[in-house]
Design a protein around this nucleic acid. Structure first.
Lengths: 156, 156
DNA sequence: ACAATACTGTTTACTAAGGTAACAATATAT
DNA sequence: ATATATTGTTACCTTAGTAAACAGTATTGT
């Protein structure tokens, strides 16, 4: 009996053909590497992504950061608290809006971010080494295309 | 000053160029879709992956399933307990080894698995629709290549 | 001007997922 | 026989993330 929708990769088991399963397993590889090499009681992946955004776009409000990262505002509070307690970032009043808090990185925040980013980039290069240059670009490009097709509503 | 290692995608911010960040965001899209459309108090992503493996390879021991899925044996216990309580799978004694438990799916387990798998595949097709056929195959292929380069030690 | 509506940061409580360490029972190796 | 390894299990902990409510503030509609 003919398949109505032929699978993308014929030679694998059902679960190995699922996009979700492959994305999760691939992410776990990268995340474990991040934790082993970078996080040593420094910054969690989540806190690093928040600090990166603050460093790259100084002055964003908490809501803007949450939207951009696709996380809940409520989840951001503890992260900012932690970054602030460590002297890496600060909350600043927003002139026009007394509800909002603008986020800026401190000097120490910029420095730590630069350090960690360099290490993360080096480790991702190592992880991607089994793919040739063209494949690396393809993978990143396809992931970004997939994301932008589904994130229209939230992020920038 | 020239960059020692040119970035893969020149036109994006630092965080958007990171593999880990893109994998996580992409996975969250698929996972949220799974939860919205499939999980309705039926099976979590994790329980589904376990049931799928049991259905595809009947008789595996718990340790084998854990290794194959890249999760801890300890985490598997509750999932099997749940599948067993719902009459979807069973633990069976292994003839040669009195420590091990062989896992088999019940009739109900096979049926539910087939139902959910069909729904998951349909939803993944919809999610992948923004990519053309060649890109879909590329994405899956690259993810699997990336995984197999880093999972040598654990899974089959 | 006033009422309805929406947004911001926050707290609290919850679930899923996973990690670590220990344990008794059982297998395997020396 | 003794040491070592493996299996399933339990207990405890961390990270992520969700959901609902809240007071304070802004915006919109009339």
């Amino acid at each position: 009996m003919a398949k109505a929708h032929p699978a993308l990769l014929e030679d694998e088991s059902d679960i190995e053909r699922l996009l979700g399963y492959n994305l999760k397993r691939a992410y776990m590889i990268v995340r474990d590497d991040f934790r082993n090499q970078v996080e040593q009681s420094v910054l969690s992946p989540r806190a690093f992504s928040v600090l990166t955004l603050i460093v790259e776009s100084s002055g964003m409000t908490q809501s803007e950061v949450a939207r951009q990262l696709g996380i809940e505002r409520s989840g951001l509070v503890a992260i900012i608290d932690d970054l602030e307690a460590r002297g890496l970032a600060e909350r600043r009043a927003v002139p026009g809006d007394r509800r909002a808090q603008a986020l800026i990185a401190t000097e120490a925040g910029y420095e730590l971010h630069a350090q960690i980013l360099a290490r993360v980039q080096a480790h991702e290069r190592a992880l991607l080494a089994p793919l040739d240059r063209a494949e690396q670009v393809q993978l990143l490009t396809l992931l970004r295309k997939f994301r932008s097709a589904h994130e229209k509503d939230e992020a920038s």
